[in-house]
Amino acid sequence: MTTVLVADDDSDIRELVAFKLGQAGYDVLAVGDGAAALETARAQEPDLAILDLMMPGLSGLDVCSQLRRDEATAALPVIMLTAKAQEQDVATGFATGADDYVVKPFSPRELVSRVQAVLARTAS
């Protein structure tokens, strides 16, 4: 079964994403901050990570770049989820190695199709 890691400090968003992805048939690991995200990504080896950009401790970008630096997690597909919508932030997100970028407020349905698309793209 495909496992998705969700890291967001807003419990509403976490619950919402977990619920929607659970419905779509994914296993979901939900955490509330960057450090926990990194730890979970290393320990549980999920198939995809959805990271909030602004989290306490390590930001989504920090987590992403640390994942990329580590051989074991370098290939983990990452979707950034964030309220920051400026071009600069988007560019930074992609430069750091994110595969896709979803702006809050988000559509749960659209998020699922993005998860599916990213997984399909990176599987090949």
Partner: peptide, 14 residues
């Protein structure tokens, strides 16, 4: 390190 991480992670657009 914790302090700087927390400051970089503050909710702010720029």
């Amino acid at each position: 390190v914790t302090a700087v991480d927390a400051m970089l992670g503050l909710r702010y657009p720029a």
